[in-house]
Amino acid sequence: MVGDENLEPDDVPEEKGVLAGENDAAEQEGPSDDELVLKSQQGDVHAFDQLVERYHSKIYGLTYNMTSNREDAEDLTQEIFIKAFEALPRFKGNSSFYTWLYRIGVNKTINYRKKRNRKRALSLDSFDQDIKMDEAYHDLTAKGSPLRSISLSELQIKLNEALQNLSEKHRTVVVMHDMQGIPHDEIAKVVGASVGTVRSRLFYARRQMQAELSEFVK
């Protein structure tokens, strides 16, 4: 798992639990995850296609925020789904499909970075135009804010650099909690640590992020 030295997604354990966002998926129209998984296990590629459609953006979000590189994120997303398809016959349904897929995602992303053994240059997705409608954006660019002096793209780079300077395990909890809104206990199941450890990692990671962004966060 995430805390282990050798992270192999081949034997992804299934723990009971659901991740935030799975309920959203359940609310989606069409067959349930369980039905789609069963059909996929019987060789129905169309059923797996529906699972890819359902979870692609979440897995891409995880890999993109973990790497701050959209090409790497695309490759990883691809690898994660292929891995999931290959491992699907061994999936017994002890955990939800989404939790299982997420665990593959986290392990594969960390392994990928370890194999590269160096930081890649940032390759960032552009901001959506809706950002200018957001209250946080207005507050950060209001008169008297330290962010007023820098452009949005500079801010984006600083933010991603600060994120990439965190260790793998700290970045994992920050991405999952602060960016993907996954609760502590569910993160604990994915990373194979206690809730206390997750909270502690999150606290430390946030302190480090504040230090990295000290010129803005005062």
């Binding site: 891409y60 997705d125 901001f127 959506d128 960016m179």
Partner: peptide
């Protein structure tokens, strides 16, 4: 402030065409 900065990251959105291509590659 950090929460607000993190919130901005959620506005980083990939190009729809790239995502479509990525899904096609996966399948």
């Amino acid at each position: 402030l950090l929460n607000q900065l993190m919130r901005l990251k959620s506005y980083e959105t990939p190009e729809a065409a790239r995502m479509t291509r990525n899904k096609q590659n996966i399948m």
